[in-house]
Computed example of a mutant assay.
Amino acid sequence: MEYILLIIGFICMITGIIGSFLPILPGPPISWLGILLLYLTPEVKTNYWILGITLFIALSIVILDYIIPAKGTKRFGGSKYGIWGTNIGLIVGLLTPIPFGFLIGPFIGALVGELLFDKKDHNRALKAATGSLIGFLASTFMKFVVSIIYLGLFIMIIWKNSEAFF
């Protein structure tokens, strides 16, 4: 049974890393699930501090993942129209079968939202859309780093308990 938990936990780790780039999958929470499955094996002594801290970080990242692109839009001079456009564009970009729709969608959504707000100021609309893209990339990088750290923690725990597993 422990080997099944190890394999499923490792699959969760890889899925979490992939989920860092695909907004439809919550990367860090899936990676955290892999750590939880590792601690459910009888060979690994449960460390509630590690589980609690990593859960808190994973949930914080999920919340920040929605806030950062909108804040990026606002920081670069965007209005509420641009922020709404970013969020709507992200959803449309995910559902549209075009390559990199999850990157193009928020950018175009913020651009369209800002142009609806002020049709004459194209520079400000482009600047806000760029802020949306930068915010999205920052949030993706943050999720990727956390998922990689969780993978390292997963491997470290397995290594530490390697005599029990192998």
Rank of each mutant, 00 (worst) to 15 (best):
L36D: 00
N123Q: 10
G52L: 06
A129P: 05
L59R: 06
V44T: 07
G85Q: 04
A125W: 08
H122N: 09
M156W: 12
L116R: 13
I67E: 10
L90S: 06
T130W: 01
I104D: 13
L25Q: 05
D118T: 03
A70I: 15
N87K: 04
S132W: 09
A128Y: 08
F141P: 09
Y3N: 11
V112R: 05
V92M: 02
A125G: 13
A164L: 08
I68L: 09
L115Q: 04
L59Q: 07
F136M: 13
A70K: 04
L64P: 14
P42H: 04
G77H: 12
T46W: 03
K45A: 15
I4K: 09
I14H: 13
L90G: 08
L90Y: 01
I148R: 07
M1L: 11
I157W: 08
L25W: 03
F144S: 15
N161R: 03
I83Y: 11
G105R: 00
G101E: 11
I4N: 08
L59N: 05
I158M: 08
S60R: 03
K119G: 10
V145P: 12
I24G: 15
M156A: 15
G109H: 06
C12K: 04
W32H: 03
F10L: 13
A70V: 14
L59E: 05
I91E: 01
I11Q: 14
T73R: 00
F136R: 14
